[in-house]
Amino acid sequence: MKCDIILCGVGGQGILSIAALLDMVALKEGLHIKQAEVHGMAQRGGAVQSHLRLADEPIHSDLIPRGKADLILSVEPMEALRYLGHMKADGALVSSASPFVNIPDYPKIEKVLQSLRRVGNHVLVDTRALAREAGHPRTENTVMLGAATPFLPLPPERLKEELARAFESKGQRVIDANEKAFDLGREASLSRVG
């Protein structure tokens, strides 16, 4: 088994938190893991990505070669476009459909979504609405984590447990919102995958 994931989004959207959670669960499941991330300058509101590789045998490269990713998991639709070349032909694209506009020349969102829909195996999630429904606008990344679960070699229950642990210090309200966001994301994804 191997699962190569490109996680992407905009600096500050919590991409590295998702990665850390996946790492933690994969570690407990006894998988081999490599996870390359971006620190420093790019985190300042720029495009951010992380290469996360899970396998049941040793992994060599920290980077995923182009055309080999099993999953592109993006918290921002235009950022998903940036990494489509990394995806393998039968890979899956799971992306937020809610644009994060912090640049003057952000393209027309309909055009972006149209391009994403051309990918055979895609799930687009209205993270902004679902995060609001979950009770906390900053849970968009958790919505996406939930949405990714049908494509991950990790048990969703374990991820949810780890999620609660990660937010332990923030109080019950934040834990609840994140758990709800996770469930909403997962449901949205399952209904698409059918």
Binding site: K68, R82, I103, K108
Partner: peptide
């Protein structure tokens, strides 16, 4: 195992 990336409107997002 390169697949031609589906094209789409992309803008750079510098820090």
């Amino acid at each position: 195992h390169e697949t031609p990336p589906p094209s789409g409107p992309l803008a750079p997002r510098p820090p």
